[in-house]
Amino acid sequence: MRSIINYLKEIILGVWSLLKGMKVTGSYFFRPSTIVTQKYPSNRKDLVMFERFKGEVVMPHNEKNEHKCTGCGICELNCPNGTIEVISKTIITEDGKKKRAIDKHIYRLGMCTFCALCVKTCPSNALAFSQKFEHAVFNRAHLIKTLNKPGSQLMKGVE
């Protein structure tokens, strides 16, 4: 007799615990404000990432097409993966002095681990992170980027 009572008790308790869980899931039906799903590709326009988000490394240029990179190579030294390669050249300034400047600042996005050491250690704050996060390309060669724009120059006053 007792075993039958226990058996029935177990069934009722089991159903009760299931209903408790169903109550949680069911209650979300009536609270549409708690839905957090984003409709990603269609909300692209108003999808703003946080300002510190580490999307990819960029070299900000001003409106006169000038950047702050002196070509010192500290970013290349600090990069743990060999992502950055600074190819420098020697230029002759207006007053006839020889000076080092960057020819190409190559950044391989495919190898980057976003440790932020290059941005952090740059002595002239020439590098920054952009908020772009859609990195997919059809060809692997597109992941190798030259950060300085063609024809760009060193900003005046940056040593």
Binding site: R52, F114, K120
Partner: peptide
């Protein structure tokens, strides 16, 4: 869903969501 809230906090302060790389010897980034 609930983890996303913490990841957003990380993203805002550290810049990364999962692999934060926020510490550096002598402090934080």
């Amino acid at each position: 869903r609930d983890r996303e809230k913490i990841l957003d906090i990380f993203e805002e302060t550290c810049g990364g969501r999962m692999l934060v790389s926020y510490n550096c010897p002598g402090g934080v980034m």
